[in-house]
């Protein structure tokens, strides 16, 4: 009996769980503790119960940041997932010699550190002389758009940046899935019809639903954790009228700009149940679809 316990595969979990306890569980508990105390720069913090949470829930800026994050996440999915699916199909059909190099070029922005990418985007989005304005806005007779100052355009700018960053990577995921689909299926489909769209919509996409779900979850998690892109583009603030204020950036601002560590901890903890709920719903929805 003793030997069986010693030889259980569960011991192999130990190193992982140890690090998990030290660097995830401990900060989580520390964060809960922190969030129940008052913000004091000097002296000992007082126990205040749920006052910090109440302050967070009464803060209009918190809802603004939450709404912005949700908009950003949704926009990323709506823009990137269909585009990436189309790109993957196109790459799959293109001349084999071009496939590798083309997908690699598409991937390059995704391999660039986001902080560096955002620095380059400062040039792209520049209010008057930026690449985007000079090449795509003014030539069509529109007034140049002040991408990073005009509250209407801040969010689109962030989504454009996310698309630029992730399109290649998501295309790559979908391409990997597309290439492993069994060929005979498509040969049968080709016997039925020689139009491409119906095959793409009713054969390829349903077969790729695992990968599409994976890509969607990846984008959701990444969008919720988005920090450096917005941090650098908007100079650490939320931009004009906080139009680009995202959750993580707001927590960062509270903690490290305003020194309110307890409020920041309360804030990060109050979005956690929401995110868990979203993922749970996603997984249940996925199971319903027999994924």
């Amino acid at each position: 009996m003793k030997r069986r316990i010693l030889n259980s595969p569960l011991w192999l979990l130990a190193p992982f769980l140890a690090l998990f306890a030290v660097f995830w569980l401990a900060p989580l508990i520390g964060g809960i503790d922190l969030s129940l105390h008052s913000d004091t720069l000097f002296g000992t913090p007082k126990y205040v119960g749920f006052a910090n949470y109440r302050a967070v829930l009464d803060d209009p800026k918190f809802y603004k940041a939450l709404r912005n994050t949700l908009t950003y996440t949704l926009a990323c999915i709506v823009v990137i997932v269909p585009l990436a699916t189309l790109f993957a199909e196109a790459l799959h059909r293109c001349w084999p010699r071009f496939k590798g190099p083309l997908s690699f070029i598409l991937l390059l922005p995704g391999l660039t550190p986001p902080a560096v990418l955002a620095l380059l985007f400062l040039l792209v989005f520049h209010g008057r002389n930026g690449f985007l304005n000079q090449w795509f806005v003014t030539p069509f007779g529109f007034a140049p758009i002040d991408w990073l100052k005009n509250p209407t355009w801040i969010m689109p700018a962030l989504v454009i940046q996310a698309t630029w960053r992730w399109l290649g990577m998501m295309t790559f995921f979908l391409l990997a899935g597309r290439e492993s689909l069994p060929r005979p299926l498509f040969e049968v489909a080709a016997l039925e019809t020689d139009r491409r769209w119906p095959v793409f919509l009713s054969v390829t996409i349903p077969l790729l639903r695992h990968v599409i779900l994976f890509v969607g979850i990846y984008l959701i998690v990444d969008a919720f954790a988005m920090f450096s892109g917005a941090y650098i583009l908007l100079g650490g603030s939320g931009g004009t009228a906080n139009a680009g204020l995202l959750m993580i950036n707001y927590t960062y601002q509270q903690a490290f700009t305003f020194g309110k560590f307890s409020t920041a901890a309360a804030m990060s903890l109050s979005i956690a149940p929401l995110l868990l709920l979203a993922l749970g719903l996603g997984l249940i929805g996925g199971r319903r679809l027999k994924l």
């Binding site: 660097f23 520390g30 964060g31 922190l34 990060s268």
Partner: peptide, 24 residues
């Protein structure tokens, strides 16, 4: 029982606990 730990880690990565993690 332990497997969901991995799922929670995906949803709530270490980065989202940045503030308490930093003090820790």
């Amino acid at each position: 029982l332990l497997f969901p730990v991995a799922l929670v880690l995906i949803v709530l990565p270490v980065q989202s606990l940045a503030v308490p993690l930093f003090s820790w």
